[in-house]
Simulated scan of single mutants.
Amino acid sequence: MTQKTELEILLAVVDHGNFSAAARVLGYTPSAVGKRVYQLEQKLRVPLLVRSTRRMTLTEAGQRYVGEARDILARLTALEEDIADDTGNLRGPIRLTSSAALGQLHVVPLVIEFMELNPEVEIELLLTDKIVDLVGEGFDIAVRSGVLPDSSLVLRKLTNNRRVPCAAPAYLEQHGVPQRPVDLTTHKCLRLGQEKQLSDWGFIRTTGGVSRLGPGFSCNSLDALHAACRAGRGIAWLPEFLISHDLKTGRLHSVLPDHTEPSAGGGIFILRPEMPYLPRRVRALSDYLADRFTEKATGSFA
């Protein structure tokens, strides 16, 4: 192994807390990770880690070494990127994650386009509606929608994430069209997870409003709610990126448009960990997604 690999392994152990977690990210066995860290300690003639059954912490010497090592590794990466720039080709791995529905509809096609333009870039994409620890699980960037909490991650807004209360024509013909948010207490409502508060559906808060939705169907999948809504099973609050074609073709109708906050739903964002040096391939993919989402914002998202 090269010195760079030893640094990467040590930093992975520090960032992920133990040999097993670092091994999963690096694709090695825990024993191989432990052996290489031990060899590095033997080379330096000083212990770098305090081992425990749950988590490993740095010794005083380890803290000094890791602080310098991060800077050295960042500068080495920058040098390699600069040399790669001379060829005009992007190369190397990118780990990307996105929520499932947004990813399938819009991220996957753009990633495929990007790989066709940059065949030496290797992208690993994870589609999941679970919140992913980007640093802990070794991801370079994420594409997420919603109202995001403050965090240590770097955020870049791609476009708005307008959500629309909607239902199938067959449902509205059978159950009537709600005229006020309070009318939803008597309608079948399709909820994401266990959300029940009307504020979660982006309605303008007024006095005399209702605090709960009518009983219906709840699920942790936007795709499943979309399918249930199109099948006439009730009223749902769905992102426009998912239902724009249904609204245009009349397969779904929006309801209560005069009672919905225009900014409800937050936005669609790129998130990435804060780092001293952003690899050129990661920056290029971020820029490509931002440019293409800007184009789409004048179409299906707006």
Rank of each mutant, 00 (worst) to 15 (best):
A23L: 05
D287L: 12
Q174K: 15
H187I: 00
N89F: 11
L110Y: 06
S151F: 07
D287G: 08
A142E: 00
R191M: 11
Q42D: 12
G267R: 02
Y277C: 07
A78F: 02
R180D: 08
Q104W: 02
I131C: 02
T5E: 15
R230A: 13
H106K: 03
S211H: 11
G27E: 07
D150N: 06
D150Q: 10
I270K: 01
M115G: 00
C219M: 03
G250N: 10
L7K: 10
I243Q: 03
G136E: 03
R55A: 14
R24A: 12
A84C: 02
T2Q: 13
R205G: 12
G267T: 11
V182A: 14
P169Q: 07
D200L: 02
S31F: 03
L278W: 02
S20L: 08
I204G: 01
F241C: 00
R162W: 05
L44P: 07
R251H: 10
V66N: 04
Q179K: 13
K296T: 06
G209M: 13
L79D: 00
D291A: 15
P30G: 08
G250Y: 11
Y171L: 02
A170F: 02
T298K: 14
A231G: 09
A61F: 13
E60N: 11
A21R: 15
G266I: 12
A101M: 12
A297T: 14
Y38F: 09
D200E: 12
T57A: 09
D287F: 07
D291W: 08
R230Y: 00
M56K: 01
S286P: 04
T186N: 11
M275G: 05
I270C: 04
H16R: 15
D183H: 12
V13I: 11
D258K: 13
L225R: 07
T260W: 01
L252G: 06
K188F: 01
H187W: 06
L190A: 05
L90D: 03
S98W: 02
V25M: 05
L96T: 07
G216F: 11
P178F: 09
A228M: 13
G216E: 04
K130A: 14
T57L: 10
E122S: 13
L192A: 07
G265W: 04
R45H: 11
L96V: 15
A227F: 04
S151M: 00
P47D: 01
L7E: 05
T206V: 13
K188M: 04
V121G: 07
N160T: 14
G27I: 09
R70N: 05
R233Q: 15
S152R: 13
V177N: 01
K196E: 10
D150A: 14
P257S: 13
A12K: 06
V255C: 11
W237A: 04
D71W: 08
L49E: 02
N118S: 12
